[in-house]
Amino acid sequence: MVSAEPFFDFTSVWSSMGILLKGFGLAMFCATAAIIIAIILGLIVALMRLSSVKAIKTFAFIYTQLFRGIPLYVLVIWVYFGLAIAVGINMPAIMAGVVTLGLLNSGYLAETFRSGITAIDRGQVEAGMALGLSKREVTRTIVLPQAFRIIIPPLGNQYVDAIKDTAILSIVGVPELMRETQQLADLHYRPFEFYTFAGFLYLLAVLTVSRGIAILEKKLSAHSAQTPVNTAS
């Protein structure tokens, strides 16, 4: 190393701020889009697992087990390169990344949703039925609002994991924070500074989301006797 240079030199990091923040924005976009897909798919799969039809139940079970077992890194390569080569499904990298991340998270969320729904006391459903509410009204006004509260903390954790996982999408060329950081670190030959700064941005995102979830949880649990006050620190 050239001795005239300062040991820590973040000037190249500051000058690349625009690119880095853009990459950061894209990472957040990917995580958010993936979580939205995962919520929708997860809810469907969770309801399928609670179905009384055996075939539907089994399918949903295999779905959750499969996507909880596959590493993201393997699946995203498989989706992006594998599918393109073997069956000609050619997706843009961002789309492949978001879809993969969404699928994997949906496996976890399906389990979260299922346990949230089954945690609602049977008596709550009976009370709703006894009032003359229809099945759908019971689900909408009694079961889901209560399940929602139970689900918030694990859902928040899942979102945090998704944000961290976006770094892996760099592997298929999604120009998110990690990809940009890698290229800039090579270009400026300052890996320590660049990776440290990237780590700082991820930390910031994770802390912000965790804080938001904790506040939301507190707000919701203020009314509910059934929600344990148990925030992940």
């Binding site: 890996p191 990776y195 440290t196």
Partner: peptide
């Protein structure tokens, strides 16, 4: 704990392998 939990493994890997070793 908070720090180690918040930084993606992928980033840590590069930070350790390239960042630490060079610096």
């Amino acid at each position: 704990v908070q720090l180690c939990r918040s930084i993606p493994l992928f980033v840590l890997l590069f930070w350790v392998y390239y960042g630490l070793s060079l610096k």
